[in-house]
């Protein structure tokens, strides 16, 4: 085992309805839609989609999920991965561009900041979906640190295994938050 690999993945096109849903909007408002169009046009060239991943053997023993040299203790994770003997661990990020846009508009237009933030959420989810899809259809739902009974603290272990900083420029704050903020690390199982 020596380091993680880089996957070249492009997500599907932006789904504006989904972005508006993340922004807390249920009805369609022409002025909001117009503003979202502006946001998408400005943000589009700032996305730098990056994914790194490792493919590792899995052994489940009660609550203990042994993934390579790592042991994660979580009933919910064990349940999600049950029946799998192999998992994929991945880190995905949109890069710093969208964070810069959110930061900029937080100071000069909170409405745009809200839409940029929602757009980033939609994009990172789309990137994760695209990556998972590329690994075939026989996979479990993805599971991240902080879900259910899997403590957020294991994020550090996932980062070390994936070498996120070096491979995709993804770092962690002291509070275990990811920077760039529009990023995901997760595990999913490959069904036999």
């Amino acid at each position: 085992m020596s380091g993680s690999l880089i996957a070249k993945i492009e997500p599907s096109a932006v789904n504006p309805a989904e972005v508006l849903r993340y922004a807390g909007s249920k009805g369609a408002d022409p002025a909001v839609e117009e503003l979202l169009k502006e946001c998408i046009a400005e943000a589009q060239r700032e996305f730098s989609y990056r994914v790194c991943y490792c493919c590792l053997p899995l052994q489940i023993d009660g609550k203990d999920c042994r993934i390579g040299s790592l042991c994660l203790r979580s009933k919910a994770l064990a349940k999600t991965l049950s029946g799998c003997s192999e998992v994929i661990l991945f880190g995905a990020t949109l890069g710093v561009g969208i964070d810069r846009l959110i930061g900029k508009y937080l100071r000069i237009s909170p409405a745009k900041a809200l839409l940029m933030d929602a757009l980033g959420t939609e994009r990172i989810e789309a990137l994760c979906d695209a990556f998972c899809k590329s690994q075939g259809c026989k996979i479990t739902p993805r599971f991240s640190a902080g879900y259910g009974d899997l403590p957020l603290a294991v994020q550090s272990d996932l980062f070390a295994l994936l070498q996120c900083e070096k491979k995709i420029g993804l770092c962690m704050t002291d509070g275990l938050m990811m920077s760039p903020s529009k990023s995901v690390t997760a595990i999913f199982g490959i069904k036999e």
């Binding site: 508006l20 922004a23 807390g24 909007s25 249920k26 009805g27 408002d29 002025a31 909001v32 503003l35 979202l36 237009s109 909170p110 409405a111 809200l114 839409l115």
Partner: peptide
């Protein structure tokens, strides 16, 4: 009353 959503509220505020 939930007839106006957050993005519109913010645009008005701006």
């Amino acid at each position: 009353k939930k007839t106006v959503y957050l993005p519109q509220l913010l645009m008005s505020a701006e």
